[in-house]
Design a binder for these strands. Structure first.
Lengths: 196, 196, 196, 196
DNA sequence: CATGAATGAGAGTTCATTCAT
DNA sequence: GATGAATGAACTCTCATTCAT
């Protein structure tokens, strides 16, 4: 009855439950019993799949951050060299990931601060790499005159903040499709850097 | 010795401590003892100034939301009628408030979700009015052709999200002045709506 | 109703309950709920009187160790200079304390090991001073030929171990009085060091 | 590969681990996972070798108590009839066992109290027999005038307590050999009963 | 106005133990 | 013989809150 596929299933259930609980109530607002109940197990059993509540968050964020990074890098690998095109592609992929994984993006964005310093430092590596990708694109655009903003760094940060906000309102039953949202935000981003 | 001005001081200390605690640890992560310790009082004494932990948050957010709204309305009352100018002014005031009150803005943005439905509904009134101010400006700009974005509603939301993000990184000892930041974000906003 | 004397009473009740619980079940075997129940309070209230379970033990042992030390020093201050008389007096006082406070002596002897290193180090200071008192008496006796044992150090340890054992069997309704027991053990001790 | 000798090995590992764990942390302070980890197995596997944690302790104490008893009886079977010689021999063997098996002696002495009444009653049989051996020797010595103590019963108890204490400080890398320690304690014992 | 004592609920976590594989 | 999954009870400790003084 409790074969290997079943235990893999339980593990997945636990992490899915964790994600839902953290997204709905926040890290401190969600209890281990909340999580266990959502996963249909007893709370002590959650500790077979992670060492602590913090560890659950770490596991979640590790995957989310790297997946987010990979999504953008993968998209860029098929893009040309023009900064405008690259920014459009990068923002589209960035927002696309958020629309595909709104809970992950929401939790990654808002609960990271509740981790201890060590875990946090290791986790921001992926996030920092993601930011530097955008930074480089914007810098290149500014250098070549494709983007007219005099504040490349600030503009990059503004773009990423703006995009991350999608996780806060996106509902899958909303009026806009994933690609429409991605395209709109890509346009907004070009506006921010002055590529119009 | 314990005259009214003294108790007024304590009251202020308590709310300042609450703000700091919620900003640093979040609503659920901050305890009443945290708050009391920061204010230099005993935790049961906090209950002389509010009925509950939730009530502390409500008081904080009520003031923050209305102050934010008022700051924008006051600035607009001195602005002309051109949509671009009005948007520039509104965004500048919106960001200006955040720079002036980063903790309030941070807490208002991220902890509202932890209130009960009734409190939340009453509080979002001010926020909704603030959003509709921007909405109206953008609509007018689109109508008159001053703004070229085909997605006025989405652009407004993007602008506000982008601006709210300032609360997450602003430090008073950073390299940019309050007005420089406000001006930059006003420019970004004009870019988003296609006013360049 | 909850006046100062009452709260002092509660504090005493809590520590008396702690002593009984640790004596009966050991440090790890006794739970905070055990202790609270014996004291007639709710378990969270125990934390008003100590910071942790370990802290309860520390407080208990601190008092017990210093009381034990003081009892011996006080008795010796009225004794003469002959090693045999001094040893008789010291052992009598040492055992007398144990008979008067068997639970304290039992817990101090058997639960010290469960404390963290820092607390333990600070607590053994009193115990070490007590041991060195006996050490010095025995050394003096050996030096002057009053005691014939060739193993003064080992004999001292044997004497103290032997005496500490009283805590394990003494019952106040037993056949022997406090002073009879003390006198017997004083005699045993003289036998161990070869003072007969 | 997993033949009988191998499982015998595992069994021994488990009981050795149990002994070490109980000696270091006490019965209640040691967990089944502690024990299993020390033995290099998984905790559920420990239940192949005993029915419960209490049962582990029972098995340990059963063997320790009978071995201790046998060591003393065996030594006495080669001794003469003089009470002094017999006491010297008995104490030497008693302490010799402790030096040879300090962990067993320590656990047997300090953790017996945590067993249920039934198990405890069955286990103290061996201990009581051991005590009565000493009791008889001392009684005989007192009767014949070889021992001058007027408190034979108390002296016996004092001797045994004193000897049991060896388990608390003995380290195999200490300055004294097994036989030196045994001889010293035999001398102390003769001093206690007044055989000098 | 301010405090310390008190409480019941619930937090995260560990426990000994069982069982199917 | 050995494992990992699972459980329910219990653990230490913290929580928000109340109340008499």
């Amino acid at each position: 009855m409790n074969d290997r596929s079943n235990s893999r299933d339980t593990r997945d259930l636990v992490f899915a439950a964790t994600l839902a609980a953290f997204a709905e109530r926040g890290f401190h607002g969600a209890s281990m019993r909340d999580i266990a109940k959502r996963a249909g197990v007893v709370s002590s059993n959650v500790y077979h799949y992670s060492q602590s509540k913090s560890d659950l968050l770490v596991e979640l964020l590790k995957k989310a951050n790297y997946d987010h990074l990979n999504a953008v890098e993968w998209a860029l690998s098929a893009a040309g060299t023009a900064p405008a095109e690259r920014l459009h592609t990068a923002v589209g992929a960035y927002v696309g990931y958020i629309v595909d994984h709104p809970l992950e993006a929401l939790v990654a964005h808002s609960e990271l601060r509740y981790l201890g310093e060590d875990d946090r430092k290791r986790l921001v590596v992926a996030r920092d790499r993601l930011e530097s990708i955008f930074e480089n694109i914007v810098d290149e655009g500014v250098r070549t005159g494709a983007f007219t903003t005099p504040h490349g760094h600030g503009a990059t940060r503004a773009v990423l903040t703006m995009c991350s906000g999608v996780a806060q309102w996106y509902r899958s039953d909303g009026p806009l499709t994933r690609d429409e949202i991605a395209a709109q935000y890509a346009d907004y981003a070009l506006g921010v850097v002055g590529a119009c």
